[in-house]
Amino acid sequence: MDNSTIAIVIIWGMVFIYSILGSIDFGAGFWAMVYKTDANAGKIANRYLSPSWEVTNVFLVLLVVSLAAFFPHSAGILGTILIVPVCLVLLLLLIRSAFLVYSFSVKAYGRVLNIVSGLTGLLIPGLLVSVLPVTLGGFIDTAGEHPSLPLGRLFSSPSLYAHVGFGLSVELFLSALFLADYSHEAENREAYRLFRRAAIGLGPTALGMALLTAFTMVPEAHWIVENMQRQAPWFLLSVAAFAVGYTALWWKRRDGGHGFPRVAVISVVAQLGLASYAYGAAHMPYIVYPFSTVERGFTNDAMFYSLLGGYVVGALVFLPVFYLFWRLFLKDKRYLKTE
């Protein structure tokens, strides 16, 4: 593998990690709004969100910074064409985080927060997903002196809405599954029942939306559909992982309960990992079709090795801290069962 390939694999890893963490984070905000009348489920969602949202947000910054560092030329093009959607994401993030902390201090903000965090839980991932169709080509206007993104063309395209629908259904499916597991860990049967039911409804929807997205691609993006057909074995494996995770919700437990949510979460994360690997491989060698390829967007080798060293050291230092964090907030019954 040459250096630019290693770099794009690292970026892919970060996109994957953030899409998992971000889905759970924003999804939890949405579920807290939906189940606000239900004391158990709403509380469980907020209990996960309180200590974790800042850390999730850092993963987003990590992704942006790494992209700009490894692929400065591509980041420049992406920034120029995506300025409006990305700025909207930033504003919504600011509002959401501010209300998260306000509501900890002023109880009256709790209700506003539920709505703010629920709505941004749909809007932010929706806008983030709109980046994907743009990178596939067909939307960028090259008529002027500099490439730009005519928003009218983007927002009137069925392909965009298929992408957004796909992104949202995956987000809600994954977060419902995760919260089902979190409630199970907290031994909160009431919340577990609700989140399990939501996950059962959303799983097939997400799978269906994925197919719809592939069929609504604009003509300019057909190169990736062809490439994706070559990745068929990976996609099949991904569907198999989904099948395991989805049926795990019905497996009988020894105590008579239904479902192994931990198995379901892990399988579905594997499903998403396999599918996004296949998608990423099909996306190669373009970062933004047809303007920017992995090779042309790449930084120099000296910078690459310094950054690589930084990630290795950083990962080694922070792995134990993440483990401690997991123990304290995702495992410790004293926290999970706080009244």
Partner: peptide
Amino acid sequence: LGVAIPSGTIVGTMLTLL
């Protein structure tokens, strides 16, 4: 901090955008 973190995210991302 709840305002510092997202506003820092804004500034960091805006560097690339602007």
